[in-house]
Simulated scan of single mutants.
Amino acid sequence: MLTKIIHSYQDVKLAAIKKFSDHTYDILDEPGFLDNGYIRAKIEHLKKEYTRIQNEIELILQYDKKDKYQQQKVSTLVDYRNYLLFHMAFLSSNSFDNLEFAINLIDDIETDFSLCLKALTLYHNGNEGEALLLFEQYFHLHPEPVEHFLINKIFGELLYNEEEFKKAVKFLRKAVEKRPEEEEIHFMLFQTYQRLGNQQQAKVHNDILSLGGGNNVNRSLSE
Rank of each mutant, 00 (worst) to 15 (best):
E181M: 08
N125P: 00
G197C: 10
D22W: 04
Q200S: 13
K65V: 15
V146L: 10
F171Y: 14
Q137H: 06
N218Q: 15
F165C: 05
I6W: 03
Q199C: 09
G129I: 13
E30W: 08
K47R: 15
L189V: 02
T192Y: 07
R52L: 11
N198M: 12
R40F: 08
S21M: 07
F33H: 10
R173H: 08
H186G: 02
L196W: 03
C116F: 01
Y38G: 02
T76Q: 06
H23L: 12
N36H: 07
Q71F: 09
H140R: 14
Q10E: 15
I103F: 04
L120V: 05
D97H: 08
D107S: 12
K4C: 09
K48I: 11
N125T: 08
N98C: 14
Q62V: 14
E181V: 10
K174G: 01
S210T: 15
S21D: 09
K73Y: 04
K66H: 04
H23R: 09
F113L: 00
Q10T: 15
N218R: 15
T111S: 10
R195H: 13
Q71P: 04
H148T: 01
L172C: 09
V217A: 11
E30G: 01
Q54D: 11
V74P: 05
P180R: 02
R195W: 06
N125K: 11
K47C: 12
F190I: 12
A102D: 00
N198A: 06
D97K: 11
D11I: 13
Y193K: 03
D79K: 14
G212I: 05
Y80W: 06
H7Q: 12
E44D: 15
E157K: 14
R179W: 01
V12M: 14
K73T: 06
D29N: 08
G214C: 10
Y80D: 01
K73W: 01
K65F: 09
G129C: 07
I106N: 04
R40S: 09
Y123I: 10
K166E: 14
D107K: 12
F139E: 08
N104S: 13
D108S: 03
C116R: 01
D26W: 06
F190A: 03
V78S: 08
E181A: 09
S95N: 11
I39M: 01
L196I: 08
E44K: 15
H23V: 11
G156L: 12
N127E: 11
D67G: 14
Q194T: 15
L211A: 09
L141D: 10
L105V: 07
Y25R: 06
L2V: 14
I5V: 13
L61S: 09
K65R: 12
I154V: 11
F96L: 10
L150K: 00
A175E: 04
A175W: 04
Y9C: 08
N206G: 07
E147L: 07
S92Y: 05
F149H: 07
Q200M: 12
Q10V: 10
F90A: 00
L159Q: 07
L85K: 10
V217W: 07
T3H: 10
P180Q: 04
L115W: 04
L196K: 04
L132A: 11
K153Y: 05
F86D: 00
N125Y: 00
L46E: 03
K18E: 05
R179Q: 09
F171M: 05
F33K: 13
G213D: 08
Y69L: 11
